[in-house]
């Protein structure tokens, strides 16, 4: 089936099914921010470099500016908004707050999501593997150390 114009698509975001009409050239980033009003997802480069548009797709972190919305049919998307009641996620949020891992906050959601992924999925999470895990996200404010410490604390 070739999708031409806007086609309605059922996507699952934060455990809620949305039926929305989406054009083939709309990215997941556009759909989340503009169509669904999910503003915790930010963007700064629109070309895969900064990583602050990262969301979890079927549990894995991916940069939403480089994902077409039609690719996420039948997949489930998680953003910060969907994890606010998750116990592990709350612990991670507290760890960020306690360790001073937040400054301007523009990158914070992306680091939280990737941190959450790392804690959940990596055994023997050490400082180096955290650094590698978050290396695709830029933070201009914090110098990363407090972010790394916040994730490490919950490994």
């Amino acid at each position: 089936m070739i999708v031409n114009e806007s086609e309605s698509l059922i996507i699952n975001v934060n455990n809620i099914e949305h039926k929305i009409s989406v054009k083939p050239n709309e990215t997941l980033l556009d759909v989340l921010r503009l169509k669904l009003g999910i503003k915790s997802v930010k963007a700064a480069c629109w070309s895969g470099d900064c990583g602050i548009c990262t969301v979890l797709i079927d549990g894995k972190p991916m940069k939403s500016c480089l994902v077409l919305s039609h690719e996420i049919r039948n997949k489930s998307i998680m953003t910060v908004e969907g994890l606010l009641e998750d116990e592990l996620f709350q612990k991670l949020q507290n760890s960020f707050v306690k360790n001073g891992a937040i400054q301007c906050g523009f990158c914070t959601s992306a680091f939280l999501l990737v941190g959450y992924y790392l804690i959940k999925n990596k055994r023997n999470l050490d400082l180096l593997s955290i650094k590698k895990g978050i290396n695709g996200i830029i933070c201009r404010c914090t110098g990363y150390k407090q972010i790394i410490d916040s994730i490490y604390e919950l490994k």
Partner: peptide
């Protein structure tokens, strides 16, 4: 550009 150009998509 912020947008992508127009195209059709197919997922065989």
């Amino acid at each position: 550009h912020l947008t992508l150009p127009e195209f059709k998509i197919v997922t065989p």
